[in-house]
Design a protein around this nucleic acid. Structure first.
Lengths: 149, 149
DNA sequence: CTAGGCGCTGGAGCGCACTCCAGCGCAAGC
DNA sequence: GCTTGCGCTGGAGTGCGCTCCAGCGCCTAG
């Protein structure tokens, strides 16, 4: 019977990796770089992740994935160190990130529209058997024009 | 009176840079890497961009910005070389990219929801003067908790 | 005639965010 | 008591996508 079996609340780094999608190396690198707080260690020096840490890691992943830089993510995590006193500042940081995400959504929608317009354009040319200048293509080309692979 | 003044249809690299938002260096690099077709040159060896090329560059920008890799963008541009015969394949590539953008939109919306949830959480804790464990904070902390900068 | 502005090429350099070892320790199972 | 598995550290390496020269040429204006 081991210590860890007496403490079912702690997770190994591998388990956290599987639950969050971050590689084991990345979890360690994030901790070293301050994107995750220093983790408590078991008697053998291994990281023991509290169960609730998974949720925190997932927030960090969401922030990174939405483009928050490593530096700003570190700031957020440093604020978390301060406890309740930093709630307002953490909220403000997240609100800035929210605006950034809104901006990304607008850009993405605009780029999607551009791609869709082009797709429609190709579809029409293929249906009509025309080239980019609106001139009819020959039969050999028309056959190729319809190929999608 | 120069040649270029007799051909108002051609654009200089700087002008294309300003219209598309790509740096001059990036325009040249894209061409070298096949993300843009080889441009015709003026008598002095400088690139002359046809007016309609701006539209094409903007499509490339949209593709890159939505995460299409350099390699896949190159494939798209190589297909464009083939003319009308590659319309179907170009359309298919854009359709795959469209699906990818949809996926990005879903992820972005999910990550936004996570951030919003956290913001709401902080807002509630601040309003109630509680810490992360739901315990009341002291007055000094409460004041700091409300600070946003 | 020369100085400034723009552009050209080839190649080196850079920033970011990981990713991948080498070499080690500990603990459990056979 | 040896192998297997997991984890540790420090540090080097990687991939992507630009970005930044140095050194040059060609116009045009003064």
């Amino acid at each position: 019977m081991t210590i860890s079996s007496l403490r079912p609340t702690g997770l190994g780094i591998r388990e956290v990796s599987e639950r969050t999608g971050l590689s084991v190396d990345t979890l360690r690198w994030y901790e070293k770089e301050g994107l995750l707080p220093p983790m408590p260690r078991g008697g053998d020096g291994r990281r023991v992740y509290p169960e609730r840490m998974v949720e925190f890691v997932e927030l960090v992943v969401a922030l990174r994935r939405t483009g928050l830089s490593v530096a700003d993510t570190r700031s957020f995590v440093e604020l978390a160190d301060e406890g309740a006193a930093s709630h307002g500042r953490r909220m403000a940081l997240l609100e800035r990130q929210r605006e950034d995400i809104h901006e990304q959504q607008r850009r993405l929608a605009a780029d999607l529209a551009a791609v869709d317009t082009k797709i429609t354009h190709y579809r029409e040319l293929i249906a009509a058997g025309l080239d980019c200048d609106g001139l009819p293509v020959d039969e050999t080309t028309a056959v190729r024009q319809r190929r999608t692979a």
